[in-house]
Design a protein around this nucleic acid. Structure first.
Length: 275
DNA sequence: CCTTGAACCTGCGGGC
DNA sequence: TGCCCGCAGGTTCAAG
């Protein structure tokens, strides 16, 4: 579930509950996610206070006392549950933070594509997972011109390029398709053929769709937490993603939403109104 | 350099 | 009902 909007919603939900609290204990139940947990993670976390929780790209960053940062990535199937009292013990409950007041946060990730890391705040710029990331979509310094400069350096089609975290951070398979639909740009258009006006429309579309998804995550659930404790879940309405064979919601052409494979991932678009 | 494809791992839904 | 296949919102690494 995790692209930028979902991770943002998770980070906000975690912030609301955990900020200001102290970690009583950390449990590492299954250490072999995509990357191994750092050595001695649990003992290093014990007794630390949660100062601030934010997000960079698709990473949740928990700033802790002692100048440490806990990084969490949700992979494809990761989610975070919040609760009080007894922490989950399911087979995918890999990592749990138990707080001194009885609250807990639990990382569940069946496919184990996610990861957790702990590092010094001062070395954040050089962190291997963070150093190469492109600008945030909402970075005010990112304008249409700069966006185009980055895009035209790419050779291939626009859709996979949007998912390149070094070009722009946080966009995944769903919102790449959704933004291109809004901007009326076909996913197979070569990056280096895009006009500045199209780059401008695309950047606007990206910001709009991400913004709406974040708003939907924040507003549909009280405090970003579902009754079952899951963070960051929402049912956003997608115009094209997963809608192969459906009519286009804009031009109404029936069965005009196609699915094609690009760089091994499904892309959805309207064959009539995206050019 | 850059791009594509396979790999990582588990679960789910559809078709037979 | 059960099995096999394809598919899944991410990232990395090898091969072309």
């Amino acid at each position: 579930m995790p692209e930028l909007p979902e991770v943002e919603t998770v980070a906000r939900g975690l912030a609301k509950i955990l900020e200001g609290k102290t970690i009583e204990k950390a449990l590492v139940r299954r250490p072999d996610l995509r990357l191994p947990f750092p050595k001695g993670l649990a003992s290093k976390l014990k007794g630390l206070r949660v100062l601030h929780i934010g997000r960079r790209a698709k990473y949740v960053l928990m700033h802790l006392s002692n100048q440490l940062v806990l990084l969490v990535h949700l992979g494809m199937s990761g989610r975070i549950l919040l609760g009080q009292g007894a922490a989950p013990t399911g087979k995918h409950a890999h990592f749990v933070l138990l707080m001194q007041d009885g609250a807990w946060a639990c990382l569940e990730d069946p496919r184990r594509f996610g990861c957790v890391d702990l590092f010094d705040a001062e070395s954040q710029e050089q962190h291997p997972l963070l150093a190469g990331l492109g600008p945030e979509p909402f970075d005010p310094d990112l304008d249409a011109r700069l966006f185009m400069q980055r895009l035209i350096r790419k050779k291939g089609p626009i859709k996979p390029a949007l998912m390149d975290q070094a070009l722009i951070a946080g966009i995944g398979n769903i919102y790449a398709s959704e933004a291109l639909f809004r901007a009326k740009i076909a996913p197979n258009r070569p990056c280096n053929g895009l006009k500045e006006r199209e780059c401008e429309l695309l950047l606007q579309a990206l910001r709009k769709v991400l913004e709406e998804a974040i708003a939907s995550g924040g507003s549909t659930l009280r405090d970003h937490v579902r009754p079952d404790g899951e963070l960051g879940y929402f049912q956003h309405h997608f115009a094209v993603y997963g809608k192969e064979g459906h009519p286009c919601p804009r031009c109404k052409d029936k069965a005009s939403i196609l699915r094609i494979l690009q760089a091994g991932r499904s892309s959805f678009y309207c064959q009539r109104c995206q050019r």
